[in-house]
Amino acid sequence: MDKRNEALLDLLYQCADDDLLVSFRGSEWLGLAPHVEADVAFSSITQNTMGHAVYFYRLLQELGEGDVDVLAHERPALKRRNAIYLEKRNGDGQYDEDPYFDWALAVVRGYFYETYKRVKLISLTASSYEPLAICAKRILPEQRYHLAYWKEWMKQLQQSSPIAREKIRTRIEEAWSQSLDLFDFGQYEQTLLNEGYITDPLELKQQWLAELQSTVKDLPSRPLEQLKNGRNGEHTTDLDVALATLSEVYQTDPVAQW
């Protein structure tokens, strides 16, 4: 296969898998948020985000990669391209048994990811791959609310009790050491940039940091770090568990109509 094409597919998998994992984690939260009203609103964001994943998988389907449900449910962890901070479980416990989930993680991840997604989508609106540019333009207006929601939570919790401030601070520290691969576009990065599919991730990182600095009081001063690089198919066991869950019913009969 032509390297340009492979690079493009890889980028689309990164976008699709990021949104799939974020929405999977969101779907585990459904019904469990700290406040009923916040739960309902959060679920709209999760549904929108899964809808975005579907858009990206559909672009892949159009390029001959296979059915969207096959792409979402059948690919092993090794083939997944999401950044690893996004696959991180919601806290301790299982969503259906003992969900000791951490709202501070939801807020920090929500705010960090939606800020990231926004700068990335803006860059993609100028992508040389026209269908991707169109897709980014469709998603952007809807995604504004996602960012506004998490930003509000971030702002308010930071101004609140010492316990909340500490929880948020701890989760920011954690995010800092696990999210570098968000700004890595994988093995084909140079081709992606040469072909004008997307902007240099270093530039996106600067934009991302600028937005974070406007809201977060004391961001860590050290550079971002990573545990593993999800863009290269390196993942944690959290992803294995997530994939087993999200494909549990599907795998009982992948060819059946559900």
Binding site: L30, S43, G51, V54, Y57, H73, T245, L246, E248, W258
Partner: peptide, 14 residues
């Protein structure tokens, strides 16, 4: 919800 057997079913049940 997280286990629903297709993306469409996941969205709908959510």
């Amino acid at each position: 919800v997280p286990k629903a057997p297709s993306l469409e079913r996941k969205l709908a049940i959510m």
